[in-house]
Design a protein around this nucleic acid. Structure first.
Length: 148
RNA sequence: CUUGCAGGAUAUCUUAUCGCGUCUCGCAAUAGCGAGAUGAGGAAAGUCCGGACACCAUAGCGUAGCAUAGCGGGUAACGCCCGUCCUACUGACCAUACGUGUCAGUAGCGGACAAGUGCAACAGAAAGCAAGUACAGGUAAUGCUGUAGUGAAAUCAGGUAAACUCUAUGCGGUGAAACGCCAAGUAUAUCAACAUUUGAGGGUAGCGCGCCCGAGUUGAAGGGUUGGCGGAUAGAAUGUUGUGGCAACAUAACAUCCAGAUAAAUGAUAAGAGCCCUUUUGGGAUACAGAAUCCGGCUUAUUUCCUGCAUAUGAA
């Protein structure tokens, strides 16, 4: 993993060395309808209320980064303002915590993050859920790689 | 004091850090990076009207359907806006003039019942198809005639069109997922039916006529794609001043450039200022709501303040 263009921060207390990149550009969004559908149909699912993530490794070489898409049901939040708000909170949580994954696992993934709660979330709850989600994901993936 | 309606203003701001879309410049070359600029609303909403624009054939004729409805004006256009008349209601005013007067406000789907059809509570014998009370007159006889009585209206008319209908005017359809182009890819393959100027089939998405295209079309069973660019943001644009007009609005000059995404940017955190409450420490609140081709309206949601009008309740 190279992050030549990102800021290199000083190591935190209990991390050996971490490269933090907080950027979240257009190329990190899941746009291909095909990929979206395949993740939706075949992805592995991990839940940490109020979030649910479904993911697949990307094999396509023309995609250079892990891609993510956030889904918030129109039935849960009728108002477009609230839907936007939830999406933005989730994206922000992903942006600030994605280094947890990419400093621990090799490879590219396509993620779908669904919001399954009923109420407008706070930033803290979403961030907590995101962190636990990522920790679960890392352990699952490491186990699988060890098996193979 | 509360609520409603109408009109006007308003819809917190600053800094720092981490980020996002677009544009420009520079450096790099296809995992880009850096700097600068810029980035949601008064309703962006509902999608209810009217246009621009695009395609459908050139957008025709008849019929159906829909919309509008005093008069005049504004506008690209409208079902919108302005003015005005009428009708109804409310308030104020009063001179040698208390008049169905003048002024102000509010409301009104405000054409036609001189063609046809329908409808009508209560009262009444009767509001049409069947009848008739009292008194008077008249006849061979009879509601045959008059008056009274009921009612807004009584034997022949009236009311009602937010009843059908008629009249006048307007409306072709679809809707940016329109439409134009580029790239990539597959099957120029198989079977069946109909047809090639004696015309299969298709278009004009209410129907008919007319018109036009036309050499392939339809079905079965399969194969491939579902990317990119344009449309697309300088306009019936915004602001200021002047001129014309009662006004809606028009026009001239000057100035300005003000989102352009596409699984869809406009966010997060912290501090401070402002607002509200509190003696202070401090605490609290921040509505409705998110551009999606673009404009003009209407309607609905909603924060705070101001002005006017109306309404009911409470207190004095």
């Amino acid at each position: 993993m190279k992050y030549d263009n990102c800021h290199t921060l000083q190591p935190q207390e209990n991390m050996y060395f971490s490269v933090m990149c907080f950027k979240f550009t257009k190329n990190e969004r899941l746009k291909s309808k095909k990929l979206f559908q395949s993740v939706f149909d075949n992805g592995k699912v991990i839940t940490a209320y109020p979030l649910k993530i479904s993911y697949l490794p990307i094999s396509d070489t023309s995609i250079h980064k892990s891609q993510i898409s956030v889904l918030v049901g129109k039935k849960k939040f009728k108002s477009a303002v609230r839907r936007n708000r939830v999406k933005r909170i989730i994206r922000e949580a992903y942006r600030l915590n994605k280094h947890l994954i990419f400093n621990n696992i090799e490879g590219k993934y396509a993620f779908l993050i669904l919001y399954i709660g009923d109420d407008l979330p706070t930033v803290e709850t979403v961030e907590k859920a995101m962190v636990s989600l990522f920790n679960n994901l890392i352990t699952v993936e490491k186990d699988e790689k060890a098996d193979s």
